[in-house]
Design a protein around this nucleic acid. Structure first.
Lengths: 232, 232
DNA sequence: GGCGCTCTTTGCGCCGCATCAAACAGCAGC
DNA sequence: GCTGCTGTTTGATGCGGCGCAAAGAGCGCC
């Protein structure tokens, strides 16, 4: 299998502080894999055979409750590490990851992880930062769900999505992958009905523009004020 | 300052895989500090000057929202690392930690962290596991808050508390530090009124026994069934 | 011992949002 | 084009649990 070009990934946070030769060495062990839209990259509770870096595309990561409800944990964008179950001491994946658009990822076997971090401790340090920032995101979400009501939670979710995966477009900022009202509902702990109602109201006020699996934020500042509890 | 005895902390997960001499070296740089009940160990948004290992006691870690509401992030038990802001790439603490009983912690200056992990990469790996398991806790909480209603969330919170800080007592399992209804409310995203009502109902049914800042679980199994959505 | 503080219990009314229901619209496939 | 599927909108209804209020109980402190 042809090795991946170093320049494609040299700037990723995961590889910060690694010498070019070290990076080449890492990449030599990775495979580049295509995941067509809709394909499952890994499944909750399945054995964590691999860990990944997303090169291109977007993934939807969600947890399934015993009674069949889904909760969206996050969306993965290009450049991010994901599926690092082994690194955090798990043998199975804690969630399911599905490609929401055609995607490409670098794939390492999980068994290589202990050896790789032993040789390149920087990897562990960088992963610690990544996991740490996810922990902060998760805590922020807990705080939001504990103290804010639905409208503000949806505003926060949209702003976070725009920041992570926003694409600037003439009218404003558009989430650059297909996202449904149901998805937003599963990110904010509400129902698609409520999300639809809230977005419709915002659309009337000119804050956002909707569409089938599409959301464009027209007035980010107004939305921000709303998220922080103001009365825009 | 007298060095801490190695045997006190040798079994902690943070120090797993370190040679005795390495551990001694680490401990030589630490200070042992007493925090009387009620004292603040560190404050949200303050500069993260130190990181810690709790030797004895219990801490309450909470976040304060802009409008003054508190959300309990977790309770720290003896043996755990905490305040590792620097490790996850922050310069300030993301939350406030207060001693709920007289406590003792080992304290290292944060500036020592980069040097320590450079010398002992195992520390980074072990911390990664710790932060990873906290991430899973946080995600579990997000899922609960998204999909479960109050009674089940409270049941889950109590079971988690019992597991982390339960003390076996003749009648059942008792949370072994002072914890108020308000605390439970701030862990589950509800109000102390609702928690009080739920606990009273459970007390009538014989599942738990209450008291001022005290909760004893009499029927862990019944509570578990309830938490999982059954009808006990 | 008794005062006062903090924590807890309990009642009542209201409301935000879930639930149920049904029609509507964009997009793919034939 | 038409058909069917999936995603979206909007209305009507009900209820879990929050907000408010006030009384009760355990405990430290003087």
């Amino acid at each position: 299998m042809a090795s991946v070009d170093r320049t494609l990934v040299a700037d990723l946070p995961l590889f910060a502080g690694l010498a070019p030769e070290q990076l080449d060495e890492l990449l030599r062990e990775a495979q580049s894999v295509r995941y067509p839209k809709g394909m499952t990259v890994f499944q909750q509770d399945a054995e964590a055979h691999s860990f990944f870096v997303l090169l291109h595309g977007h993934l939807r990561v969600y947890k399934l409750t015993p009674d069949g409800q889904q909760v969206v944990v996050r969306f993965v964008s290009a450049g991010e590490v994901f599926g690092v179950a082994m690194a955090i001491g798990r043998t199975t994946y804690p969630a399911t990851a599905v490609a929401v658009v055609d995607s490409i990822a670098l794939v390492w076997p999980s068994v290589a992880w202990p050896r790789l971090i032993a040789k390149h401790p920087t990897l562990a340090v960088n992963t610690l930062q990544t996991v740490g920032s996810r922990l902060q995101d998760a805590h922020a979400r807990v705080v939001e769900m504990s103290t804010e009501q639905v409208e503000r939670r949806i505003a926060h979710a949209l702003l976070r999505l725009a920041q992570q995966s926003g694409r600037k477009v003439e009218a404003g900022v558009e989430i650059d992958f297909p996202i449904s009202r149901q998805d937003v509902a599963e990110m904010t702990g509400t129902t698609l009905h409520t999300v639809s109602r809230v977005l419709s109201a915002w659309e009337d006020r000119g804050f956002v523009a909707g569409g089938r699996q599409k959301i464009t934020i027209l007035e980010p500042h107004r939305l921000f004020v709303l998220a922080e509890g103001g009365l825009p």
